[in-house]
Write a protein that binds this DNA or RNA. Structure first.
Lengths: 107, 107
DNA sequence: CCTAAGTGCAACCAATTAGTTTCACATGAG
DNA sequence: CTCATGTGAAACTAATTGGTTGCACTTAGG
C-alpha cells in the first residue's frame, strides 16, 4: 500500500511543485511556458517538475497543436488522505486498548 | 501557509519515515534502539530520521533515565489534510464557475 | 526552400539528503 | 576512581535530486 503512493508523497515534498498544483487548481489548463513566467525557474525546469507531477498522477497532459496543456488531477490526493486516516485509526485503536486496560487494572 | 507545513511534507516523503510513523502508531513509546532492530538501518540512522520527524512535530520525545522514548504525535497530519482540502476547494470552485459560465452562454 | 521563433528532450553540474563510521557522554560494577 | 556497557551527537562519504545549459524538432512567414 505504501509503495503505490510513494510518487505522490515525493511529488508534494517540493514547495515549488505544491505551488504549481495550487496554480493549476486555479488556472488549468496551463503550458510549461506560462507556468515558467509565473515562477522563478526556467521553462525546462518547470517541465521536469510537471513530469514528476504527471508520474504521480496529479496532472494530466493534453497535446493541442504544438503545445502541451497541463491540467490538475486532484484524485490521487484522496489516497493521501486515506493514508493519514489509517495512521489515525491505528493510533485511536491503540488509545482505546490502553484505556480499557487501565480500567481493567483499577477495577 | 505553505512554509509552515514544509517540514511535514518533507518528513513524509521518505518511505522509511512513514514506516516509522506506522510503527509508532502501534507501539509508542519506542527507543531508537528498538526501532533499529525492526528496520534495515543502523541505530544512528534511525536517530536522524527521528529528529526529522520531531522537527515536523510528528513525534514527541521524553527522556527516561538515560534513554529517550519517542511517541507519535498525529496532530500535524491534520494540517496536511487541510492543505489537501484547500486544493480541492479551489478546484471545485473553479469547476462551479465554469459550469455557470457555460449555462449563461447557452441561456 | 530558407529563416526565424517557439517547443519539449537529453546531458551536464551543483547542492541537498541518506547512510555508515567514528566519537564523546552517561550509567552501573569492581 | 577505573573499566565496561550502552546511549545520542557529529564528521565523513555516497547517492539522489533540483536546476541550468545546450540540442533537436515543429510551425509560421518571406
Amino acid at each position: 500500500m505504501n509503495e503505490l503512493q510513494q510518487p505522490i508523497f515525493s511529488a508534494l515534498a517540493a514547495p515549488l511543485r505544491r505551488d504549481l498544483l495550487l496554480n493549476l487548481a486555479q488556472n488549468s489548463p496551463r503550458t510549461a511556458t506560462e507556468l515558467a513566467e509565473e515562477h522563478p525557474i526556467t521553462r525546462q525546469g518547470i517541465l521536469k517538475h510537471l513530469n514528476i507531477l504527471e508520474d504521480a498522477g496529479l496532472v494530466t497532459v493534453r497535446q493541442v497543436g504544438r503545445e502541451k496543456q497541463y491540467t490538475l488531477t486532484p484524485e490521487p490526493l484522496g489516497e493521501l488522505e486515506q493514508w493519514i486516516d489509517v495512521i489515525g485509526a491505528i493510533w485511536d485503536a491503540r488509545l482505546l486498548r490502553l484505556k480499557s486496560f487501565v480500567e481493567n487494572e483499577e477495577g
